[in-house]
């Protein structure tokens, strides 16, 4: 079972077991990670599950679709080379060790 580390905006690290097939957002929600709002529940309709992906992982994740890129462009403090919407990343076995950092605010 892949283990994923979420780093909160104030530096707290929480490592959670992930179920392959669920999204990164659902993983965070199941682990009650603070700072992921996911107001739309994973429909790629808001930008409140924004995360910064660890640079060593960014290129290893599934590519972004246009809708996600457009929403991220208007998210709170997006980073051009690290930002993703966690609802659009389905966790797979090879994501063991993935680290993402949460922004100081969502939306």
């Amino acid at each position: 079972m892949p283990r994923i580390t979420f780093v909160t905006a104030d530096g707290q690290e929480i490592t959670a077991d992930a179920t392959p097939g669920l999204s990164l957002m659902e993983t965070a929600r199941a682990a009650a990670i603070p700072g992921i709002l996911a107001e739309c529940g994973g429909a790629c309709s808001c930008s409140t599950c924004h995360v910064y992906v660890d640079p060593s992982w960014y290129d290893r994740l599934p590519a972004m679709k246009e809708m996600e890129a457009d929403l991220l462009d208007f998210a709170w403090e997006p980073h051009p080379d690290r930002s993703r919407l966690s609802c659009q990343i389905d966790v797979s076995e090879d994501m063991d060790g993935l680290r993402v950092t949460l922004p100081a605010q969502q939306g």
């Binding site: 669920l22 659902e26 929600r29 199941a30 009650a32 739309c40 529940g41 429909a43």
Partner: peptide, 27 residues
């Protein structure tokens, strides 16, 4: 659970019942 997918993804059969739950029951 989440209601919005009921009239969308869930009714299309693209989403399992458990994924509708907002938290796992252990929460």
């Amino acid at each position: 659970y989440q209601r919005p997918p009921l009239s969308k993804k869930y009714m299309l059969g693209d989403m399992s019942r458990e994924r509708l739950y907002l938290r796992p029951e252990s929460f």
